[in-house]
Design a protein around this nucleic acid. Structure first.
Lengths: 340, 340
DNA sequence: ATAACAAATGTCATCGATGTCATAATGCGG
DNA sequence: CCGCATTATGACATCGATGACATTTGTTAT
């Protein structure tokens, strides 16, 4: 690595002058500047960011741990967080993280030290991975949780009301005349899975209807492939549902594919509703009715929480959960039950 | 910010001891360690990454500039690059970048200094944005280009053969009996647009067929929405094509949607082929025949190029372009022309 | 030509951590 | 209880950059 001293030596000036060329070029005589620039080029010099930041009072980037960057949910949040960081003038460093990796603890350590990260953002399901959170607390790292399953007294979090949203969807389907509604659940490790499922049941209860039979619940994992299986199961029932609420949009897209293969028209023969308003929701035919999560607002809130962590934590260990509103987006994939 | 000195003062030990507690806990007496740990907790201490790295010989993360993280292409590469970085033990810091921003130069500067980035990765279309590349050279930053339109003598690059791939697709469609093939082009600023288009023409020429009429080329921009318009245009022709080659998968998905709305069956009435093998290609019905780009190999090569930059550049300013192979993935959306 | 002031450059200390080496505290055998 | 090996801790220099302040060089007015 070449340093500012190497350059200064070659250019025959002091290190400070080289520094000036870099930071306040106008304060250096043109001839000198040229010389310095030439020396920098010759040596392929690039300033050491660590030293610079140490001196200037470092800026650490926000760390994001991603389990599966291909998932619509995570990539959507990733994008929203990037935008929020940009608005806030911060940077985000991303790390792939899979809890199953045997050396995950070492990797987190490395991320915190070498990755120059102090603040972390945890998405589901990492936000519920207690060993990780314990390690972070031990290391004095800060974290903000997105959609954790339960309030964590140590880390602030930002959530949406999955249960209420699911209930709203079912009530919407009720209003279209559907009574036999299938539900494909999410990944069992994900708290939203339970919440969305119980929102479904809550809707039945609230309306005084008998709870749906167990066979109307098929288990998924938020992924397209498993969604195919689940849809096959539901549509093969002796009395198939007239509507299916899939736990997320990728699963809903899978339902749509299976329905098409079976010659069912959507929403004529089957209404399909998703959750998340992922990009795919508007890129499949028919476009999916879904719940739009307030990604951008949540991301902004998260970045803000990171920013104000100091004030937060000084309030004697009390951290808060912030609830953000969602929205039902009605598109083409849902419609009234056809009589007869 | 609390420093190691604050902790050492509170714990009544030297700074070095605090450092040891952090880095080699076994070399500190248990009682002392406890005290230090307690002090760290009280002061909510977290070590300054810049200082640590300055001392240890810094690690800079690789910077990725994204124009549109929502696009299938960019997010796919993003994911592949993350994986490659993980394999190589590096970190990636991501920045949203839009050339249209009036202060883009200042933002790049900030990214290089505050973002602790020395090496950058540029995806299309940024890899063809000359003012940016000039600025980077001026700043002594390093960059590796992915799929630039032309070889850049200053930066190494990794590319695939868009022209050959497009030609391969058309020849495949020829083999199914298609002769009236529509093409929806990509974004006009993207070099791949020209290459893929010329691959189409090349296929006709190679077969000795007359080139397709101009109306069979509809202009798109790689995005779903524009794809809808383009598909409408093509399918409204007096003599609509029997197959459409869309410049990417999102556009192809749009074609499929329009076809379905018009009651056309795929591939019975219309074959649809995409490009990229984006996630959406296998999440729509029918699943799309497409060109699989070697994302992961390209990403690995890119990270490797970043790693070996020194050896590269010492070879007196000569940088190389690496060509990686692609693959035609035949799925459900393409089939033979129905006779009669 | 010279004082007076501005511009250009240099010197030294500093940011917060850790490596090196020195010193203090402990343990152990006799 | 001594002497020596070992362990635990501390003092100081250092990483590469920049801020504060000092010094040199150049310019202008008289």
């Amino acid at each position: 690595m070449t340093t500012i001293y190497d350059v200064s030596k070659l250019a025959g000036v002091s290190a400070k002058t080289v520094s000036r060329v870099l930071n306040e070029p106008d304060r250096v005589k043109t001839a000198t500047r040229e010389q310095v620039l030439a020396a920098m080029k010759t040596l392929d010099y690039s300033p050491n960011a660590s030293a610079r930041q140490l001196r200037l009072g470092g800026f650490s980037s926000i760390g994001l741990l991603l389990e599966d960057p291909a998932s619509g949910y995570q990539s959507r949040f990733h994008q929203a967080l990037l935008t929020a960081c940009m608005e806030a003038g911060k940077y985000m460093t991303v790390e792939l993280f899979e809890g199953v990796m045997p050396d995950w603890q070492a990797r987190v350590d490395r991320f915190l030290t070498e990755g120059r990260v102090r603040d972390l953002i945890l998405l589901p399901t990492l936000c519920d991975f207690t060993p990780l959170k314990d390690l972070l607390r031990e290391r004095g790292a800060r974290a903000v949780l997105i959609a954790p399953s339960v309030h964590d007294p140590h880390f602030p979090s930002v959530v949406m009301d999955d249960r209420a949203a699911a209930r709203q969807i079912i009530e919407y389907l009720f209003s279209l005349g559907h009574t036999r509604i299938g539900h494909i659940t999410g990944h069992p490790d994900h708290s939203a899975t339970i919440l969305r499922r119980s929102g479904v049941i809550e809707a039945y209860d609230a309306r005084g209807l008998p709870r749906p039979k167990p066979e109307l619940f098929a288990s998924g994992d938020f992924m397209f492939k498993k969604g195919i299986e689940a849809a096959e199961t539901l549509l093969s029932l002796p009395e198939p549902p007239t509507a299916i609420f899939a736990a997320n949009d990728e699963t809903a897209a899978a339902v749509a594919m299976v329905a098409h293969r079976r010659g069912l028209s959507i929403p004529g023969d089957l209404s399909v509703v998703g959750f998340d308003d992922a990009p795919i929701a508007s890129a499949v035919w028919p476009q999916l009715t879904t719940i739009a999560q307030p990604y951008f607002e949540m991301a902004r809130k998260v970045v803000h929480l990171v920013d104000t962590w100091d004030q937060q934590s000084t309030q004697s260990g009390f951290v808060s959960t912030y609830l953000t509103p969602h929205e039902l987006v009605v598109r083409e994939s849902s419609g009234p039950v056809l009589k007869g």
